[in-house]
């Protein structure tokens, strides 16, 4: 029953390792986009313009409650319909960046909301302007709360990159599929992909937990 072939494993491992690089790159790029866009989404819900706040809120809700894989298809195929060709990488990064930006905006929002009202008032009493109030008082305190969520989504985006294979981004899953159909063997490539994911995501999650504790200590906050 166990027909595991080590020579085959050694044969395909270099290709998979190379594809892992692409997977990590996609995750980091997408996450970078998401971090910036997410902050824009979060702050755009706290403007003095209720209509804008509401519109951004609805967009975030929409992106959050629909499947990423469908959004990837949407971005990739709708462009050409209107004469805009997007490469798989570009389309993939837009889709996954937007999707995770909506998640991260919620994380930021919760972080900002967790800062006690007295902190806003103390900043006001000291005449700090809004930019300084956010950058020096509120956001530094929101980070420890937000960090856990941000870490979860970093691991999350990494695990969602296989969906990019559906439009032909040559990451791990795409490579495993290619190997599988070339050799008519799926056991080793799919199992190895699973192992590679475990090998990266479990230590990353552990390291993030450690860093979170460190940040809290550094900022002089009590640990949770």
């Amino acid at each position: 029953m166990f027909d595991w072939r080590w020579e085959f494993v050694l044969d395909i491992l270099p290709r998979l390792v190379k594809a892992t690089g692409n997977t990590v790159l996609a995750a980091l790029l997408g996450y970078g986009i998401a971090m910036v866009l997410g902050l824009v989404f979060a702050l755009a819900q706290r403007t003095p313009f209720p209509l804008l706040n509401r519109a951004v809120r609805e967009c975030v809700e929409f992106i959050r409650s629909t499947p990423l894989v469908l959004q990837i298809f949407f971005v990739f195929y709708v462009g050409p319909q209107f004469g805009v060709m997007l490469s798989p990488w570009t389309a993939g990064m837009i889709a996954i960046g937007l999707h995770y930006a909506s998640y991260l905006s919620e994380v930021y929002r919760a972080g900002i909301d967790s800062v006690p009202r007295g902190q806003w008032e103390a900043a006001t009493a000291l005449s700090l302007n809004p930019v300084r109030t956010y950058s020096r008082i509120i956001i530094p305190q929101a980070i420890p709360t937000a960090f856990a969520g941000m870490g979860n989504y970093l691991v999350g985006i990494f695990k969602d990159t296989p969906m990019l294979s559906v439009i032909g981004v040559a990451e791990l899953m795409h490579t495993a599929n290619a190997i599988g159909s070339e050799h008519y063997r799926f056991l080793e490539p799919y199992t190895l992909v699973g192992l590679i994911f475990l090998l990266i995501s479990l230590p990353t999650a552990a390291a993030l937990r450690k860093t979170e504790a460190k940040i809290r200590r550094k900022l002089g906050l009590r640990s949770l």
């Binding site: 027909d3 296989p162 899953m173 799926f186 799919y190 699973g194 994911f197 475990l198 479990l202």
Partner: peptide, 23 residues
């Protein structure tokens, strides 16, 4: 840890394409 440490898509393919090899 296994199910949270890997991707749903990987799990889906594994269950659909690899499990048959185990009968």
């Amino acid at each position: 840890e296994i199910f949270r440490g890997t991707s749903l898509l990987v799990q889906l393919y594994w269950i659909f394409f690899v499990l048959p090899l185990f009968g």
